[in-house]
């Protein structure tokens, strides 16, 4: 039997970025705005929202749909009910990741930010090239400060989840 419940919507609504989920009246403006949905039916923001509103927590959090948003914000811009759809999808990703559902590329982002304070490492070759083109030497981020900040946020929890996975 299929169970329908508003519990998951309530959970999402409490999260940063998820506040506007119940504004949705399923008009589908988001889906027709979406460049990804236009090329594949693997992603459909309207359906993602209705699944969340119906309480299909597992489907939403373990499925691939939440990862296929390209963060272009076109849906958010045009939504007549001011549902902050892109932000809502971040909120859903946050929940999925905190529960251990972490796509590989995101584990890489997490470790890069934590270890380097930046997402991309500058290769030695590039540093030389920079010099050749007369670019100033790169200033370094304060990794310690970044780590101290991250420890105060839910990022800290994510680190633990990832450690547990390894």
């Amino acid at each position: 039997m299929i169970r329908v419940s508003a519990d998951f919507a309530k959970e999402v609504k409490k999260r940063l970025g998820g506040e506007t989920i119940t504004n949705c009246y399923q008009c589908g403006t988001c889906t027709s705005s979406c460049p990804v949905a236009r090329v594949t039916n693997r992603f459909n923001p309207r359906k993602l929202i209705v699944q969340s509103l119906r309480g299909k927590r597992d489907d939403v959090l373990t499925g691939e749909m939440i990862w296929l948003c390209c963060s272009c914000f076109n849906c958010q811009e045009r939504c007549p009910q001011r549902v902050e759809i892109a932000d809502l999808i971040y909120a859903l990703r946050n929940i999925a990741i905190s529960e251990g559902n972490v796509p590989n590329i995101y584990s890489e982002f997490v470790s890069a930010l934590y270890s380097e304070g930046k997402l991309v490492k500058v290769a030695g070759f590039t540093e030389k090239q920079r010099e050749n083109f007369g670019l100033p030497p790169l200033k370094k981020p304060d990794v310690e400060a970044i780590r101290a900040i991250l420890a105060e946020t839910s990022f800290g929890e994510v680190l633990k989840v990832l450690e547990g996975k390894e």
Binding site: L113, P136, K139, D142, E157
Partner: peptide, 24 residues
């Protein structure tokens, strides 16, 4: 060029933890 500038904390980081992204 200021010292210490880090990552802007873009969508990939927001996807991990919105609060971390805001703080960084």
């Amino acid at each position: 060029d200021l010292d210490g500038m880090s990552c802007c904390a873009p969508p990939p980081i927001e996807s991990v933890a919105v609060d971390a992204s805001l703080a960084v």
